[in-house]
Nucleic acid binder design. Structure first.
Lengths: 335, 335
DNA sequence: CTGAAAGCGCTTACAG
DNA sequence: CTGAAAGCGCTTACAG
């Protein structure tokens, strides 16, 4: 492959100094149009390729963003990651992606590694556990870091946090099921004690309290499998349940498939609402009602915030909630 | 954050020269154990962080792999990307991920950008179209590149290609349905004319020819939606079809949900086999039989190959096929 | 608006 | 086994 051309070669070819070439590379306004064109032409002629590592070393800005996700096999996160990456790409940033698989140890190691790579910022949906380790590593590096969906620490404000309005989602879903005439509504899935579970559940609990209904809570994994299991459990232990709010769509889709299996008419015998509104919701049978978190918009906003923090030093607000909206489909009783 | 310590600070602290520090960093065997320990200790004491950009500039090896995927919203690719990234991480490499959304223009731009970032290698599941542009960009850079699942060019061997044995998968699926007693088997989905579609279909066609059955082919999108639509079409145009082989699991899952909707008993009235064996197959109702591509294993192998190419100069074989295996579940008639 | 010089933090021969 | 020197390809002040 020989030697790749450098800005020196470009400068020679274009008949200018290498500083001028560098200025062209940085889109500096202080380069005359005609020289700019000449330099660009010279680059094209000799097949010049920008070397970011060299630039990073001098300017300490890599154009790399670290996206660290607790569970990338979950389609919700995969959809977010995809939208986020594409948005960053449009703004000239590349995304270094890492799945931590809910392992806090792997998480700290991953983050350290990405810091070595000189990421200009982090967006992280953290794994639970050993929060201090992770926080300390990031803090020591002083890299702009935005937490999404989950917060490593509820109390302090070391890193801004943005998430959908989980509580409102729980509220809307519950009110909707009540309006549809449900007399007994269960909440399924979500790890007990986690903030996200608490929030989604609290909307549900508030509404039920106002309507003097007793809650039925079956927390647990956030998987299709768990949703399927809970249908049997409901039939056995809580036969009066006629509506369920699921921690997320995976649980909801599991409920749907178990209902089909056991001949329960979803949308009539049992009304089901999921949470997140992943793409699958639209193509299940019946289509799954869900609290939409507007994943693509959320990803765009997140990208915009981390970029303006990096580029313009604008630190996002510490606590932000994005809008949610109930997407009503056949699983909760609409035609 | 002030100045981050450099190897010079470490050297001063440990009382050695910076070359020695560098050798420790590179795990060189020619550093005495005691000095190695002293240097490591000094690093910990002053909070040293390795600066890869500097190392990359000098050594031209970034420790970054570009993973370029045509459709990352498809769970099959998301599962692959996740397994691949985690495997790379275990080997000290970071993954820069990019979705091209089946857009060849975005693909060439993406690849150029990743080359600027100095990726040490590419793994790419390409988008179709303008293949030459993409090939030229990579070739000019001389970056080790492994094509997976799809090949940009069938004829030439510019970049090694590895994929599951699609044809064998089609064969197994068809034979299985025949054994289950199907009298008329359709092939659903897959873009017409694409190599992957051709291959999956050719296994199906061969088996049918041997058994003197007429094929029924309905190519099209590779989505749940398309699968749903085809159930109605089959009922209208090909009521005798009692088995379907789907281009992929998304199509298969769409078929299942439409069957539930229209009261068709999957596994009896209609036997269904998908392709890829994504995780959802296990939790649908009925569970979806599928040609397993062993995604996690495939990802591991891919990672190993690109790494040994980069690290040891071992270029993978030009055409490789990985094993597939039919996972038989209720949708094709097993209990 | 453009050029000459220094320097970012490493690795790499080369001595010793 | 360790040290002094050069250099990777850029950007950044600083002159002019």
């Amino acid at each position: 492959m020989g030697q790749r051309p450098t800005i020196l070669d470009v400068a020679k070819k274009a008949g200018v100094s290498k500083s001028t070439v560098s200025l062209v590379l940085q889109q500096s306004a202080s380069v005359k149009e005609s020289t700019r064109v000449a330099v660009r032409q010279a680059m094209a002629d000799i097949g010049y390729v920008y070397n970011r590592s060299a630039a990073t070393l001098r300017s300490s800005s890599s154009g790399l963003i670290g996206l660290v996700i607790n569970d990338l096999r979950n389609p919700f996160f995969a959809e977010f990651a995809t939208s986020f990456q594409m948005e960053l790409a449009q703004n000239g940033f590349a995304t270094v992606l890492a799945n931590t698989d809910e392992d806090p140890l792997l998480q700290s190691r991953t983050i350290s590694s990405l810091i070595e790579h000189g990421v200009s910022g982090f967006v992280i949906s953290p794994a639970y556990g050993q929060e201090e380790d992770t926080l300390a590593v990031i803090e020591a590096a002083g890299v702009p870091t935005l937490q999404v969906f989950r917060a490593l620490s509820q109390d302090d404000d070391r890193f801004p946090f943005v998430a959908p309005d989980y509580k409102l989602g729980g509220t809307c879903a519950t009110e909707h099921l009540l309006e549809m005439g449900c007399k007994r509504i269960a909440f399924l899935g979500g790890l007990n004690g986690r903030a996200v579970t608490q929030e989604r559940m609290s909307g549900y609990l508030d509404v039920l309290a106002r309507h003097r209904q007793e809650p039925v809570i079956l927390t647990g994994e956030v998987t299709r499998r768990f949703g399927k299991q809970m249908v049997a459990k409901l039939a056995a232990d809580h036969p009066d349940v006629d509506g369920v709010i699921c921690f997320n769509d995976l649980v909801g889709l599991g409920v749907l498939s178990a209902c089909v299996e056991s001949g329960i008419q979803v949308g009539r015998d049992l009304r089901v609402v999921g949470f997140d509104d992943i793409q699958d919701c639209q193509d299940s049978f019946p289509a799954l009602s869900s609290v939409s978190c507007h994943i693509p918009d959320f990803a765009k906003t997140t990208a915009a915030q981390i970029l303006s923090w990096i580029n313009d030093g604008v630190r996002p607000n510490d606590h932000q909630r994005s809008e949610v909206e109930l997407a009503i489909r056949a699983s909760s009783g609409q035609p």
